[in-house]
Design a protein around this nucleic acid. Sequence first.
DNA 1: TGAAAACACGAAAACGATTAAGTGGACAAA
DNA 2: TTTGTCCACTTAATCGTTTTCGTGTTTTCA
Lengths: 339, 339
Amino acid sequence: MASLKDISRVCGVSVATVSKALNGYADVGEETRAQIKRTAKEMGYLPNFSARALKTNRTHDIGVLFVDEAMSGLTHDYFSSVLDSFKRTAEQRGYDITFINGCKERPGRMSYLEHSRYRGFDGVVLACIDFDDPEVSELLKSDIPVVTVDYLYNNRMAVISDNVKGMRELLLYIHSRGHRRIAYIHGADSAVTRSRLSSFYRTAEELGLEIPDQYILEAAYRDTEAAQAATGRLLDLPVPPTCILYPDDFAAFGGFNAIRERGLSIPGDISVAGYDGIPAAIWLEPRLTTVRQDTEKIGRASARKLIDLIERPKTTLIEQLVIPGSLEMGKTVALLETP
Amino acid sequence: MASLKDISRVCGVSVATVSKALNGYADVGEETRAQIKRTAKEMGYLPNFSARALKTNRTHDIGVLFVDEAMSGLTHDYFSSVLDSFKRTAEQRGYDITFINGCKERPGRMSYLEHSRYRGFDGVVLACIDFDDPEVSELLKSDIPVVTVDYLYNNRMAVISDNVKGMRELLLYIHSRGHRRIAYIHGADSAVTRSRLSSFYRTAEELGLEIPDQYILEAAYRDTEAAQAATGRLLDLPVPPTCILYPDDFAAFGGFNAIRERGLSIPGDISVAGYDGIPAAIWLEPRLTTVRQDTEKIGRASARKLIDLIERPKTTLIEQLVIPGSLEMGKTVALLETP
DNA sequence: TGAAAACACGAAAACGATTAAGTGGACAAA
DNA sequence: TTTGTCCACTTAATCGTTTTCGTGTTTTCA
């Protein structure tokens, strides 16, 4: 690989001049610069990332940690969709994206923070279920620019899907369709779960809805089996709900199974709603009522904010961006006669 | 950040000794090594990736280019699933993963090869629809270790989903269920499409099946609308097929729509088959018959082979690994009375 | 006892870039 | 003529490692 030195030799100037010519510094003569640029091209010169990073302490590389319960954020529709959008904007602004090593089994591995320091990431973006992981907190407390997705931390930039509004609108809609006995199978404990759950309770209270404890169950996200089992328990109740909310669209499918297994129809006998609005949700028959999260915007906003934070730390406002989703009225919530 | 120099100062030895002590070289005294390791830990020492890479010309970083038609491999179930498995194995073996910048609009951007050289990737993995892209060929022709997914190039390592066997088994199955008029809506032209298509034709010939030209249509991958339209055209034929194959599970859903729009039933009136076996395929009612590709194995094999290639270039066999999928017999292919 | 071998460590040169500070010449203003 | 200001470069230090080649000390063994 041709280096600055090679070019300097050929052009008969010093390395410094070559570097400056290529980087657009002012104190280089016009014809010298032209010649240098020409020979650089001819020799197929490419700067050396490591040398540059070593000297400047900047990598233009962003570390991403997208981890779900199964330690694989990539097959997770919501995460991968956010990541895709994040990647797109970051690349547009000249940043590369490297995964923070998520493999916890490796002997002698580095912690998330160590890895980030080692690689010299200019900033990191975090999206994971388990923000209680001590390694994650360590990273959050560090001096590396961070933006979190769907989690709020002390003095950190956060981009958050509006679960409060989403859940509220969903519940208002269901209530407006005449439902009064509404059950909620929520996901495993996490910031997202907590905000949806509290919004659920608050909205219910506001509406004067009575939510018996048996109507609130837990089933892991994206676990159709667990959702199916939980649904079974709800249906076996002396007074079963008329509508059931699920942790996500995937889990809702488990509900479909349980309901149909009992010979009941959707939404004729039981109404159903999901959360996420993943593309495949259109496959369900009848079309699933759900809340679509704006992954495109969430990813874009995270990238923008993180890069702003990296490039203009002083003037960038640390804030919480709350990105609204949208209610997708499918066909799974029946219109009930008011009782 | 503490550096080797800092440690050397504290321990009263030279940087060279510190480096060697930390890297397990033999010519360091026992107690010296112990002391060095201890103070390194105390000072929170972390090696500097860039310095190391600069000196050794090794990054332990793998570049990935996963690009589909829409330039976003991440939201693509098949790709993201392969990538997830790839990432997992690579991380286990101590490699990081960085995306090769796919944004083609940026002024002054680097080509895939340039970017890979710039970043000093130890190897790259390529999975994309458009292997005809000159930038991709440039990368393929370079001296960087490469493994391609679902594409065969001259003297390069390739890991390939067995589309020939997959399509063959699918067609044999459909034929065994009594179908004789079988249509195939295939995806846009690519290596994958070509191998499925040729396997389709060969198997049909072997079975003595007559495939009229009107039975072969094209619709982009994962494009439900296009598939729906194509299906419409097939159904409007004077002698419509009894079974339709789709580019993938997503497209198959477009088929569902078109068929039901006409008041026909699946598989009562028309049989349907997809390809991929994505998780959400279980949502379709009736359960989709499809070919599940073994993304887990494809990702794992690619990573292993690439790393072998990086670490032992001489002894690693360049080969084509063909990973079989499995036929998922759903309920969408009817058993016909033999005519 | 003396030579050879083993051991523990250090000096120094890279790797390829960036950048502050310095240098010498041309030219203009005083 | 002197002084000063640009201009277009160069010098040289530096980032943090790795690694080759010494070098001085100790041990081994004939």
